[in-house]
Design a protein around this nucleic acid. Structure first.
Length: 337
DNA sequence: CGTTTTTGACCTGCGC
DNA sequence: GCGCAGGTCAAAAACG
């Protein structure tokens, strides 16, 4: 199952969706369309101007711009993002939480997954639900517990009766790709696969191989559009990107307030993203999770640093830095897949 | 031989 | 309580 033929496929599209768990269940929905330059690595994703404010009640980020024939011409301009008060966002979110029949490929509860506005485009949305204040569940902690009775896996007793299982923040991508498992710079070990209802394609479960890192991700192919791969990240890396020479910087991402959900794919080295994000007019939110996470800025930077040579008014200040931050090696996947 | 993938069984949550 | 679906475990197999 090698999928190493990455990086130079035909262009593909990317949809980003986040499930930030924010304290007090603050909701943020943020739809944007991103496009990937290649289908096998998120490092090659190119943010394009996407239509957000469609029927899903997204924030309505950008008008869709067909950049498929010219990556270099599509620049993500935050200055054009409509600024929507949080309260209004929440209202919109509530209106939008209606599950779309076609969004079944990403069954996260209360997730809003916008369908592609056009055959050539996809939209993203982010939402938060579960409060995150409690323990990070699902991955590490439970595993530690289970280590104890590992030998009798079936006899697991309810360990947390009153503790409702809470998920870590999630962040999902929809990527038009022939490759299922996108290269994001981290090493993953597959630990499960399940058939997806109403879909001929299975869903694969991966866990970060780094010790102590409980980040998980799910990969499945949309049954609506089999060319689209939905990758859902969950959790927060506790280590720098393993394939990055400057990974040491990565540890800063956590303390610097990068969103949990984003950390799964936000290169720790790309910490200056925070700057980018903070400059965003539309996401100046009070909740830490919301204010620290902005996938689009990540991609924007990635895009500029890895693909687009054209300067952006937004990135002028750190364009050079970005290039420095995301070295080309990063896309050289040392791992398989 | 260490690591990763495969895969069936099991757990958990939820709706009926 | 039952059935379903999502998610996880872990032994075995495959891989490098």
């Amino acid at each position: 199952m090698e999928r190493r033929d990455h990086h130079h496929h035909s262009h593909s599209e990317l949809v980003v969706k986040s499930e930030n768990n924010m304290a007090n269940s603050t909701f943020i929905t943020e739809d944007m369309l991103l496009t990937t330059g290649t289908a096998s690595s998120i490092f090659d994703m190119i943010p394009c101007e996407g239509s957000g404010g469609d029927q899903k009640g997204s924030l309505g980020f950008m008008d869709l711009l067909d950049i498929h024939s010219d990556f270099g011409s599509s620049l993500f301009d935050w200055s054009q993002n409509p600024v929507i008060p949080l309260q209004q966002q929440q209202e919109q979110q509530q209106q939008l939480l209606l599950p779309s029949p076609t969004s079944s490929t990403v069954p996260e509860s209360s997730e809003v997954l916008n369908n592609p506005a056009t055959p050539n485009s996809s939209s993203i949305s982010s939402s938060s639900n579960d409060a995150q204040g409690n323990k990070l569940d699902g991955g590490d902690h439970e595993e530690e517990e289970k280590d104890q009775d590992k030998t009798k896996k079936q006899s697991l007793k309810p360990k947390k009766k009153n503790q409702k299982r809470q998920r870590e923040p999630r962040f999902a991508f929809m990527t038009k790709s022939e490759v299922d498992h996108l290269d994001d710079g981290y090493r993953w070990r597959k630990y499960g696969q399940k058939a997806v209802k109403n879909s001929p394609y299975p869903r694969s479960y991966y866990r970060c191989t780094s010790v102590g890192c409980g980040v998980k991700k799910r990969v499945e192919r949309s049954c609506d559009d089999t060319s689209i791969v939905v990758t859902t990240y969950e959790g927060q890396h506790t280590h720098p990107c393993p394939i990055t020479p400057r990974g040491s910087i990565g540890v800063l991402s956590e303390s610097s307030g990068f969103g949990v959900a984003s950390s799964s794919f936000v290169l720790p080295q790309a910490q200056p993203l925070a700057y980018m994000y903070s400059s965003s007019p539309s996401l100046n939110l009070s909740t830490s999770a919301a204010s620290t996470f902005n996938p689009s800025s990540f991609f924007l930077r990635e895009r500029h640093s890895t693909i687009s040579p054209s300067p952006s008014s937004l990135l002028n200040d750190d364009y050079g830095l970005l290039q420095d931050i995301v070295p080309s090696q990063m896309r050289k996947e040392p791992k398989k897949e």
